[in-house]
Amino acid sequence: MRVTVDVKGEETHEVDLETAEGTPAARSSPPTYAELLAAIDYSPHEVSVLVDGHPVPEDQPVETDEVTVLRLIKGG
């Protein structure tokens, strides 16, 4: 499964979830958004994943081929 991950303010990544590092090729459950983030070295704690503008929980299975990632920033 190939997913386009648009990290706003950073790069856009093409992630093949079947072969992403740390993602078993053969598995009983589909990969989650947390695993998708791990494949591009982000923690779910520092970003939010949106699908069509809707935030999705990190433990949900990836069911789309395009996601947007917003990074938390805190400076003021």
Partner: peptide, 24 residues
């Protein structure tokens, strides 16, 4: 949405850098 809709919880302390450490 509200801020928590986008970011339900704050990150672990120290995981998101601030201006004092990265500059602005």
């Amino acid at each position: 949405p509200c801020y928590r809709c986008l970011f339900p919880q704050a990150p672990e302390p120290g995981t998101v850098p601030d201006c004092a450490t990265t500059g602005v």
